[in-house]
Amino acid sequence: MTSLSTHVLDAVTGTPASGVGLAVTDAGGALLTSGRTDADGRARLAEDLAPGTYRVRFATGEWFAAAGRETFHPEVVVAFTATGEGHLHVPLLLSPFAYSTYRGS
């Protein structure tokens, strides 16, 4: 089985994005888990993903609004494939008008 984590960083301030809402869904859109990033912008999202395609939804619009900032992206959705082995880390570098993600370690 595959475990999953994330780390969200505010690229404008260079600080962790704490309190970002998260949701993990399977290929059919069924909600598997949800939560928020911790004070360091991190979250462990799943410990037992079977092989398949999944999505992590980051509630970026809500997070920016809570900080009194505008954003172009009300949410960021990252689709990825789990192979059923090891650990997947899906980081998000976030700014009001752009974002970037990659397969972390």
Rank of each mutant, 00 (worst) to 15 (best):
S18I: 09
A23Q: 13
V24W: 06
E47M: 09
T15H: 13
L22G: 05
G28Q: 11
A50R: 11
E47W: 15
S3Y: 08
V8H: 03
S3C: 02
Y54C: 08
L4K: 04
E47Y: 15
L32D: 06
G14Y: 15
S34F: 07
P16Q: 08
A50T: 14
L31K: 00
A46V: 10
A27Q: 06
T37V: 08
L49N: 07
D40R: 05
A27V: 09
S18R: 11
P51G: 09
V12K: 07
P16M: 08
A30G: 00
D40Y: 15
A50C: 01
G21C: 05
S18H: 15
G52T: 01
D26I: 11
T25W: 04
S34Y: 10
T6K: 04
D26T: 08
S5V: 02
A11V: 12
A27I: 10
L9H: 07
T53E: 15
A23P: 00
A17V: 08
R44T: 12
A39D: 15
P16H: 10
L32T: 01
S18P: 02
A50L: 12
T13Q: 15
T53Y: 15
L4D: 02
T15E: 14
L9I: 13
G21R: 10
Y54W: 13
H7S: 14
S5E: 14
G28S: 14
D48H: 14
L4M: 05
S3G: 07
E47R: 15
A43W: 09
A39V: 11
L4S: 01
M1K: 06
T2M: 00
H7I: 09
V8A: 04
S5A: 12
A39Y: 12
E47C: 03
A11F: 13
A11P: 00
P16T: 13
